[in-house]
Computed example of a mutant assay.
Amino acid sequence: MSGINKVILVGHLGKDPEVRQLEGGVSVASFPLATSETFNKDGKKIEQTEWHNIVLWRSLAEVAAKFLQKGKLVYIEGKLRTRSFEDKEGIKKYTTEVVAENFTMLGRKTDFEQDSFPRQGIKNGDELENNGLDNMGF
């Protein structure tokens, strides 16, 4: 039996997505996402925030760059991916990221600057035409 690698997050963007173009014109976007939970400890309300590194690829990265910005609330589905790299001193480091497979912008329509924005989930591989909204059922 194979395993399951599924992550679902609802949180606020910590900063605007950073988009890069890789070889072959492949787009990749990344941003930190904050999720918070509240609990009571000794009669006091405590809020604990976790930060997640989010990575989006190809057309999903382009849509994120166009519509997402710091502070916005978003629902993200994806999978965990751990990768290694060498820092400036040549020391091997590891990082764990959420590779997003789709996302949905949450909140009121007035929370977004554009008059129309995708209200349903956007999946990696969706075709982008007319500002990315044509083939998404809007």
Rank of each mutant, 00 (worst) to 15 (best):
S30F: 04
R81D: 15
K79E: 13
Q21G: 09
Q21L: 14
L73H: 02
G3A: 13
I4K: 15
G90W: 09
Q69K: 15
E50S: 12
V99S: 11
I76S: 02
N5M: 13
E62C: 03
T96H: 04
E89P: 00
Q69T: 07
T104R: 11
S84D: 10
G14E: 10
E127I: 09
D115N: 08
Q114S: 14
E47C: 10
G3N: 15
N135R: 04
N130K: 09
G132V: 02
Y75F: 12
N102A: 11
A65V: 01
L33C: 09
E86I: 05
Q120I: 01
V98F: 03
V26T: 11
T104V: 10
E89T: 13
L80C: 01
L9V: 05
V55L: 09
Y75W: 08
I46W: 06
W57P: 02
A34R: 09
I122T: 00
D115R: 02
G11M: 05
E89Y: 08
F117L: 12
A34L: 09
K109T: 10
N130A: 10
L80P: 01
V7T: 11
G137T: 01
K109E: 14
N5T: 01
A64W: 00
T110G: 00
D111S: 10
Q69F: 00
K70P: 13
S27Y: 03
L73D: 00
F103L: 14
I122W: 03
V98W: 03
N135A: 03
L133C: 06
E113A: 10
M1V: 13
G78H: 01
Q120T: 07
